[in-house]
């Protein structure tokens, strides 16, 4: 049985986990919560540096309680990107140190793909079109011929950041998404906002600005509602097109913004109308978590991938389509042609 320890810390969540092929053995998380405003990269990195050793110590203790000792760990996985540079460097340093001091191989993983693979692990989805929505990222992806291809993505900021920007202007605290979802429930009506889909891509920065301007003449409830309806419809439309284009029959929702119930409902309706299956992992695997990093590290390690220390530099703009997928066997069941 392969066992991997993984560390996540691309943004505000510092989380480490030990997983094996069957399940998560242990997980410890320490979240950076800005007192005001949004995530300050340097302060988030300082938070991670302060808590990294404590989190890993607690994790190893928890592992021991479940029968996993340091000697049982086969690899150390960490998020190599994308993410905030200072945070990535802090976590990479912790991972390298563990790898060198324990003499265990290192596996650098792509954070976006970790979101996808944990979903394939923890739901029945096998070859899905993925809608990945978080603070900084908004992408529609699917596996085809050796890579997770990006079929559509945001041309500017991620949906979570668009919500946060609006929330800050509206006087709401970070993170904005959950507050916007609450306000939207009490709306009286829809106010028109720019719906920006260009080919297979979408754009949120103008929409966020338009929503902020709308606060001058409409209630915050109506603006939150209209913002959500517009932004989510844009992404569901592109997800549907990717389904039609690839001929796949599953949709997987990934990333922290996937916690939004209205987004889930819209995807569910779209899938229902197309006869596709819709999957959402349980909440602990939606936002950034150490388990997904450990799990992707595990399947990469099993397929023969290790990262040499001198090639373990972080990449804040690491794209999912830069990664050669070595852990999926080419068979008619997955990655079929269009």
């Amino acid at each position: 049985m392969t066992t991997v320890l993984g560390i996540e810390g691309t943004a505000w969540n510092l989380s480490a986990a030990i997983v094996n092929e069957n399940d998560v053995v242990a997980e410890v998380t320490e979240t950076y919560r800005p007192p005001t405003g949004g995530i300050h990269p340097r302060e988030a990195a300082q938070h991670h540096a302060k808590y990294a050793s404590q989190v890993i110590r607690d994790l190893l203790d928890e592992g021991k309680q479940h029968g996993v000792n340091i000697g049982n760990i086969d690899a150390i996985a960490f998020s190599q990107g994308p993410g905030l540079g200072p945070c990535l460097r802090t976590v990479a340093t912790a991972a390298r140190m563990l790898s060198l001091s324990l003499n265990i191989p290192l596996v650098g993983v792509n954070h976006c793909i970790a979101h996808i693979e944990v979903g394939r692990w923890k739901t029945p989805a096998s070859d899905p079109v993925v809608l990945y929505v978080s603070g900084a990222n908004s992408q529609v992806l699917a596996y085809r011929m050796g890579k997770y291809r990006v079929f559509g993505e945001t041309l500017d900021i991620g949906i979570g950041n668009a919500f946060d920007k609006f929330a800050r202007n509206a006087g709401l605290s970070h993170p904005g998404g959950p507050k916007i979802e609450e306000y939207a429930k009490n709306a009286d009506g829809y106010i028109p906002l720019p719906y920006v889909v260009k080919g297979m891509d979408f754009s949120f920065s103008g929409l966020s600005t338009a929503a902020t301007d709308a606060l001058k003449h409409a209630s915050i409830e109506d603006v939150c509602y209209s913002f959500q309806e517009t932004a989510f419809a844009m992404m569901v439309e592109v997800t549907e097109r990717a389904l039609a284009h690839t001929g796949k029959s599953e949709v997987l929702l990934a990333g922290g913004v996937g916690a939004n119930m209205r987004l889930r409902e819209m995807l569910d309706i779209m899938c229902d109308d197309r006869g596709a299956s819709f999957y959402v992992p349980e909440k602990r695997f939606m936002g950034d978590n150490g388990a997904m990093i450990a799990y992707l590290g595990l399947i990469m390690f099993e397929s023969g991938t290790v990262t040499d220390i001198d090639r373990s530099h972080v990449n804040p703009n690491f794209r999912p389509d830069d990664v050669e997928v070595t852990w999926i066997a080419e068979d008619p069941g997955i990655g079929g042609t269009k």
Binding site: Y190, Y195, E229, A233, E237, E240, M270
Partner: peptide, 13 residues
């Protein structure tokens, strides 16, 4: 029409 989209938004698009 797309059922997942709000009717007024859907019609406009």
């Amino acid at each position: 029409p797309k059922r997942y989209r709000l009717v007024e938004l859907d019609e406009r698009i």
